[in-house]
């Protein structure tokens, strides 16, 4: 099958459902892992941080990124702070070259956390910018999949509660920890439903605080796996496939990760996807070209790294982590073109 017979949307959906396709798609899901690099924004004038707030700019920038990089999807939003903002944390929106961040978490401890009702998401302007932009992209580009990006339950909870206290309370105050994370998960399900309603084809969840390295296997099972599966299960019941990205080394949590109910598992650069495929053939693998290589390497190195992923029959080709905003566009193009040719 040549390109063009199958649309990028169809290709990604087939791969997420474990079906065959002419070749793997090459995507960048947005959120933590977005490709709005400075080179693109200065060329088009559609810039961050403004585009975090405006549906028109967000739509334009998402389209610029896909067109100029060659990634076969749209991925929005361009940050991981929307959820925490709705839940009351103070956000610093960053700059052209620096992504938004949590300036101050809303609560000092899990026990102190009181949350707004879930409808707070419906009222938030940035949530509306994201969902309106999803809708606009699906209307304008029917063949390109729109990926709605979410911050995972543990990372969102650790963005709303002081993270050092939060991590200790996972052990010391299990009742309140579960109460908070369960509530946060319900909020994320609600937000995901808004994205799916707006037309998102896929929901991607990145949960960088929920790593085996930080939590260890017991806490990973008790909190990360449980609530990621609650979220993924609910989103899949809405009819949208789910990608889950797990950061960091996975030695400590490999068996747990095999029980994730996602359509695809995306991992960091130093995890061997070939090994994951060998151990757990039921998992659709996604990843994992080093973002260090994308930033500091050259086109040749990037092409060789990409060919290795293709040889290992990775299901969906993507960057391994968040891209630096100073990543050269030429390297990203070498990445996507190697997959397409």
């Amino acid at each position: 099958m040549a390109d063009g017979i199958i649309s990028p949307k169809e290709r990604l959906k087939r791969k997420l459902n474990g079906q065959t396709a002419d070749r793997p798609p090459v995507i960048c899901p947005g959120g933590m892992m977005n490709a709005a690099v400075v080179e693109i924004m200065t060329a088009t004038g559609h810039t961050l941080p403004e585009a975090h707030h405006s549906r028109e700019l967000m739509t334009e920038l998402a389209a610029d990124v896909s067109r100029l990089t060659g990634f076969e999807n749209f991925g929005i939003p361009f940050c991981m702070t929307v959820e925490a903002e709705v839940l009351g944390s103070e956000i610093n929106y960053g700059a052209l070259d620096c992504e938004p961040k949590i300036q101050k978490e809303r609560f000092s401890s899990a026990a102190a956390a009181v949350f707004p009702d879930r409808q707070a998401f419906d009222r938030n302007r940035r949530v509306r910018a994201v969902t309106d932009s999803i809708y606009a992209l699906t209307q304008k580009y029917p063949d390109t999949p729109v990926v709605g990006s979410l911050t995972g339950p543990i990372s969102t909870a650790a963005s709303v509660i002081d993270p050092m206290t939060f991590l200790k309370q996972l052990r010391k105050d299990k009742d309140n920890s579960h109460r908070v994370i369960d509530y946060v998960t319900d909020c994320l399900i609600h937000y995901a439903a808004m994205m799916v309603e707006a037309g998102a084809d896929v929901i991607s969840v990145a949960d960088p605080t929920a790593t085996g390295e930080i939590l260890g296997p017991k806490m990973f099972d008790e909190y990360a796996l449980r609530y990621l599966n609650k979220l993924a299960g609910a989103v899949r019941a809405m009819g949208a496939p789910v990608i889950v990205h797990i950061c960091g080394k996975m030695e400590a949590v490999k068996p747990s990760v095999a029980r994730l109910k996602a359509n695809a598992l995306s991992v960091d650069a130093f995890v061997s996807l070939k090994e994951i495929k060998g151990l757990y053939p039921h998992i659709n693998t996604m990843g994992n070209l080093s973002t260090i290589m994308l930033e500091f390497g050259n086109s040749d190195k990037v092409a060789r790294g990409t060919q290795a992923l293709l040889r290992n029959r990775i299901d969906i080709i993507a960057p391994a982590c968040g891209l630096s905003t100073s990543t050269p566009l030429a390297n990203i193009r070498a990445f996507t073109e190697t997959v397409k040719n």
Partner: peptide, 14 residues
Amino acid sequence: EEEYFVPELLMCAD
């Protein structure tokens, strides 16, 4: 040795 992880280490520190 990956016997303890971040929550445990923080509690030891407390």
